Computed example of a mutant assay.
Amino acid sequence: MAPVVRVRSVVLDCPDPRALADFYAAVLGGTPEPDEDGWVVLRVPGGPRLAFQRVEEFTPPEWPRGDRNAQQFHLDLNVGATWEEFDAAHERVLALGARLLDLEDREKKDFQVYADPAGHPFCLCRIEDGETP
């Protein structure tokens, strides 16, 4: 069956679109570009277009709460197959302003949960054997 539509963008609400776009550009690549509506758009090489829109009274999601202001979605980001690649990505995202949310033993799960500078959760995931990067 043919799809009805194609995804244009994943849009993240935030208090400072340029700052959050710069964070994700440093993590994923690409160059943030302001658009005509005041959003900042990041065209991720080989990935989806991310867009960032200002919300004046932004309240970040609370992970892992399931009641009010719960996480609405998160990004899973592949970092490679080795723990060395994982550790390097971990150090880089922390240096860029991410915050570790999940303190459980990563070796049991092959991923860890972080918050971006605006508070949106994302996971760094180690690629399993046979998984498509």
Rank of each mutant, 00 (worst) to 15 (best):
F86Y: 13
G97Q: 08
M1F: 12
R54I: 05
L94K: 07
E36Q: 15
I127H: 00
V10G: 04
E84F: 08
Q72D: 14
L100Q: 14
N69I: 03
V93W: 03
L100P: 03
D110N: 14
F122T: 07
G119N: 12
Q53H: 13
P45C: 12
Q112G: 10
L101T: 03
E84M: 10
D102Y: 06
V5D: 06
D35K: 13
V10L: 15
P34T: 07
P121I: 04
L103C: 06
P15A: 10
F58S: 11
P17V: 02
Q53V: 11
V55Y: 04
L28D: 01
D22H: 04
G30P: 09
V27H: 01
P64R: 08
W39F: 13
C123F: 06
V40L: 06
G97Y: 04
D13S: 09
P60S: 11
P64F: 04
Q112R: 12
T59L: 08
N78D: 15
V44T: 09
R49F: 00
R8C: 08
V5P: 02
P17G: 02
V79R: 01
G47C: 07
R6D: 14
M1A: 15
A88F: 00
L101A: 12
P61I: 15
C125Y: 05
P15L: 03
V40M: 05
A2L: 15
R126N: 02
R43E: 13
K109F: 12
E131C: 01
V4Y: 11
D129L: 09
A118E: 07
V7E: 14
G47Q: 03
E85R: 02
E104I: 09
C14L: 10
D116M: 12
F122S: 02
G130C: 06
Q71V: 15
W39C: 13
P34M: 10
E128Y: 00
L96F: 04
G130I: 06
G38S: 05
L20C: 06
A25K: 00
Q112T: 14
L12D: 01
D87I: 00
I127N: 04
H120S: 08
Q112F: 01
W83L: 07
D116H: 12
E62W: 09
T132P: 00
D110W: 05
A89D: 03
G97A: 12
E62H: 11
N69R: 09
R65Y: 09
D102H: 12
A21S: 10
E91P: 01
R126E: 00
V41C: 08
L75K: 02
R8N: 15
L103T: 14
R43H: 13
T132S: 13
L12P: 01
A81H: 07
E56A: 15
C14W: 03
R106D: 10
E104D: 15
D22C: 05
T59S: 09
P60K: 06
P64T: 07
V93G: 02
D16S: 11
Y24A: 05
H90L: 04
T132N: 07
A81P: 02
L100S: 03
C14T: 12
P15I: 05
A70T: 12
D102M: 13
L20Q: 14
L28I: 09
E104S: 15
V41K: 02
P32K: 07
R6T: 14
P64W: 01
A88P: 01
A115I: 09
A51G: 12
A88K: 04
T132V: 13
Q72E: 14
